[in-house]
Amino acid sequence: METWILITVAAAFLQNIRSSMQKHLKGAMGTTGATFVRFGFGMPFALLYLGILWRVAGHDLPVPNGTFFFWSLVGGLAQIAATFLLVHLFSFRNFAVGTAYSRTEPAQAALFGLIFLGEKASLGALVAIAISVVGVMLISVARTTLSAGSLLTSVFSRTAAIGLLSGTFFGLSAVSYRSASLALAPSLPAPDYLMQASFTLGFVILLQTIVMLFWIVAREPDELKRIGVAWRPAFVVGFVGASASFGWFSAMTLQQAAIVKVVAQVEMLFTFASSFFVFREWINRLELTGCLLIVLGVVMLIVL
């Protein structure tokens, strides 16, 4: 099995843990604070990984250029916007529909990859992407009264529009991170996906931390107190989140962002496994069908 696949599956597993803990943190702080924890508490670990690769493992430090800074800025801000929009969906009663459309990220990442990087996906890869996206959408609406027809027509609703825009920003951020990481290769003696990914992650997460910290100080200063009180679980979230991000950045340095994001849908399987085996929550027929479609899409990508 290829290295990028193993890295992606591991990152998806870690992200599932991080997401579960972030839900716990929302009881102790607001949405902005819980979102900041992902970046602010993850930053020291991201910089630690970079330092270990450079000073301990002896990897050469890349020299950033204008292309790197441009795509890092685009990716970092796009990810913040995508996360904000996704969290905003919880303000709507039928946010499941919007969430389903935000999961079109792999398809949108494929489009951005074609536009900005000239990366063309094979017909088999496009079919696999479509199958996995449908699977995630089924899971997202499985516990609502929505039908397949209403899911398609609801694309014109405000909620779906926000979800699609969230998926657009997530797709843009994924392609931007790949572009930024690849831009570092010419400054190294030989391509080094670990160092390229670590350096990109370190810069981006530092940028995101600064941007969100300025926002909290200016708009929601009380959140700082809540974050300080819950620093212990936030510390764990930061560690797991930074580890997952390092995996995403590494995988997207080795493979097209859209392809990585399809394999990353296995996170949904980890989520349902946790629900069933840990919390004893039953899975209905639509959810099971969605899981099988995700598996089918991932298997197609690996085999084709």
Score class of each variant (00 low, 15 high):
1 M>I: 13
3 T>Y: 13
4 W>K: 02
8 T>K: 03
8 T>I: 12
10 A>K: 03
14 L>N: 02
19 S>T: 10
31 T>W: 02
35 T>G: 00
44 P>I: 05
49 Y>L: 08
55 R>L: 15
60 D>Y: 12
62 P>T: 09
68 F>I: 01
72 S>D: 06
73 L>P: 00
79 Q>L: 14
82 A>N: 09
89 L>C: 09
91 S>W: 12
94 N>Y: 11
117 L>G: 05
119 E>R: 07
121 A>F: 13
128 A>I: 10
130 A>G: 01
135 G>C: 10
138 L>M: 15
138 L>S: 02
141 V>M: 07
152 L>A: 13
154 S>M: 13
159 T>M: 10
164 L>M: 15
169 F>K: 03
174 A>R: 08
177 Y>Q: 12
182 L>K: 05
185 A>S: 12
187 S>V: 11
189 P>W: 08
191 P>G: 01
196 Q>P: 02
198 S>I: 07
199 F>T: 00
206 L>V: 14
206 L>G: 07
209 T>E: 06
213 L>C: 13
228 G>D: 07
229 V>L: 12
231 W>I: 06
233 P>W: 02
243 S>M: 06
244 A>V: 03
247 G>F: 06
249 F>H: 04
255 Q>P: 04
261 K>Q: 15
267 E>S: 00
275 S>K: 11
283 I>G: 00
292 L>W: 09
